[in-house]
Simulated scan of single mutants.
Amino acid sequence: MPSKKVLIVLSDADSFPLKKTSGPDAGQTVDQPSGFFLQELAKPLQKLLDNGHEVTFASPKGKEPTPDPNSVSLLAYAGNFYERQRENDLMERMKAENGFTRPRTFSSISDEELSTFAGVFIPGGHAPLADLGDDPELGRILRYFHKENKPTAAICHGPYALLSTKKAGDGSFVYDGYKITSWSDAEEKAVETLLGGEVEKVESSLRNAGAVMVEGVPEKFGGTTLHRELVTGGNPLAANALGDRFVRMISV
């Protein structure tokens, strides 16, 4: 299989806004620690590398990405120490070999350079809520992949970044009418109960922009949704299936 280039979009944020509804900070918006969700990045990334593809990391300002603290716990891996170690080792390798600690800035990637990429992937974690949904340079990038019908993948909170297309070009949401699966409002409400605060809802935000949200039992347990060039998944359980589907799309 010929090697192809894939752009991986990351957030610069190490937290996301949480409007507290209980406790001493009730009524205030606080910074809740977050970052990229390790499994949602590592599993598709490993599949891309296993198939000989080259990856380039990019973010709004080129800061070193931060893992979501919850995603690196043994609980997130259901106690599977070896799986967690493999994925941590992969990220250490990326730091040494692939410029993971210094991502490209979105603005440094010209439209001409975008033509050299076969696809784009956006992992989740709550961090995209902080800086990806309203980034005009990311909007420009995603509009390019949409216009060229090039494979685009996003998982969990990653689909929130698709809203950035409203900040570029003519201001329209280019995924209007697309079937999309993301972290659901119901799942977010469970998180809100644990954190005692309100969080921006990915599902509702995309639906309000014009997306047709696909949520149900299959999507909760690892299913993915494909519509034209866009493949999406709802939570970490979809990471393997999303990676497989994305690899097949860019290999055509």
Rank of each mutant, 00 (worst) to 15 (best):
K167C: 15
G79W: 07
A153K: 12
Q85K: 13
T152Y: 05
P136S: 14
G133D: 09
K167D: 15
T101W: 05
E92C: 03
F173K: 13
S164F: 00
N149H: 15
R104P: 02
R143W: 02
F173R: 11
V174H: 01
K166R: 14
K166S: 14
K166G: 12
V120E: 02
A161V: 02
R143N: 05
I155E: 12
L90Q: 11
P128K: 00
Y160V: 09
N80D: 15
G158I: 03
R102N: 09
S73E: 07
P67E: 03
A154H: 02
T152N: 06
L142S: 03
D68M: 08
F106V: 11
G169Q: 13
T116C: 01
E92T: 06
N80Y: 12
L74F: 07
C156M: 14
D135E: 01
D176V: 05
T116S: 10
S73I: 03
K150I: 11
P103A: 13
R86T: 11
N149F: 12
M91F: 10
P65C: 09
L114C: 09
I141S: 00
Y160N: 09
P123C: 09
Y144L: 14
R93K: 14
S115I: 15
D134I: 05
I109C: 03
P136F: 12
R102G: 02
A96F: 06
L129K: 04
M91I: 15
I155C: 12
E97V: 03
A96I: 04
P103S: 14
P65E: 05
R102V: 08
S172Q: 10
L138T: 05
S107R: 11
I155V: 14
R140W: 01
P136R: 12
M94N: 05
E113F: 00
Y82C: 08
G139Y: 00
Y77T: 00
F81I: 15
F106Q: 12
G171M: 15
D131N: 04
I122A: 08
A130V: 07
Y82N: 12
